[in-house]
Simulated assay, not measured.
Amino acid sequence: MAIPSLVGDAVGWLWTLALVALPGLVAGLLWSPFLIAARFRALMRALPPRGRLVPSYVGVALALSVPYLVGVLLTVALVDAAGPGWSDGFIETALAGGGIVAIGGPTVAAVGLPRLGVDWDSTGYGVSTWALLVAAGLWYAVVAAVPLVALAVGLALPGGY
């Protein structure tokens, strides 16, 4: 009897992990065109595990999805599902998460990392580097916000969910 229970618990945890990781992985996949830029690849290679592009890229894509996941969890936990509460919460999550990613991401990459000794831009963190980082941050923010906004619109329709 204990084995089926253990297997059921393991499957439950695996589903939870998949649901938490899936938004970041999908956003990361849709964010991948930025890997064409040598500076963006240099940034990813400079992050732990140093010199390895794919693990760093996946880690960053997952990390950037955290504000959205936290917002969804807070909305579900703290807001009444009746009425427009969840819809409003998901829109607010999309906006707040987008701001954190679009402003915080480039700032951490171009200001924070060099101060921590991670010097990844051989061009000196000029305007073109900032433009690349802001474009990447905005694109990730849009890609991550689309499902939340679609869900919010669906919840706001007559009949909701």
Rank of each mutant, 00 (worst) to 15 (best):
Gly12Thr: 05
Gly12Asp: 05
Leu14Pro: 13
Leu14Val: 14
Trp15Ala: 15
Ala21Ser: 13
Leu25Arg: 07
Leu30Val: 15
Leu35Pro: 12
Ile36Glu: 12
Ala37Asn: 09
Ala37Glu: 12
Arg39Met: 09
Arg45Asp: 02
Arg45Gly: 07
Ala46Arg: 04
Ala46Asp: 00
Ala46Ile: 08
Leu47Asn: 12
Pro48Ile: 09
Pro49Gln: 03
Pro49Ala: 02
Pro49Phe: 07
Pro49Met: 06
Arg50Trp: 03
Gly51Val: 10
Gly59Phe: 10
Val60Gly: 08
Ala63Glu: 05
Leu64His: 02
Ser65Pro: 08
Val66Gly: 04
Leu69Lys: 01
Val70Gly: 05
Val72Leu: 12
Thr75Val: 06
Val76Met: 08
Val76Tyr: 00
Val76Gln: 08
Gly83Tyr: 01
Gly85Gln: 04
Gly85Arg: 03
Trp86Phe: 13
Asp88Cys: 10
Ile91Leu: 13
Thr93Asp: 05
Ala94Lys: 00
Leu95Trp: 12
Ala96Cys: 00
Gly97Gln: 01
Gly99Thr: 00
Ile100Phe: 04
Ala102Cys: 05
Ala102Arg: 00
Gly105Phe: 12
Gly105Ile: 04
Pro106Ala: 06
Pro106Met: 02
Ala109Asp: 12
Gly112Ser: 03
Leu113Ile: 05
Leu116Gln: 10
Val118Leu: 10
Val118Met: 06
Asp121His: 04
Asp121Gly: 05
Ser122Glu: 15
Gly124Pro: 03
Tyr125Thr: 11
Tyr125Met: 09
Val127Phe: 12
Trp130Ser: 07
Val134Ile: 15
Gly137His: 02
Gly137Met: 03
Tyr140Ser: 08
Val142Lys: 02
Val142Gly: 01
Val142Ala: 03
Val142Arg: 02
Val146Glu: 05
Pro147Glu: 03
Leu148Gly: 12
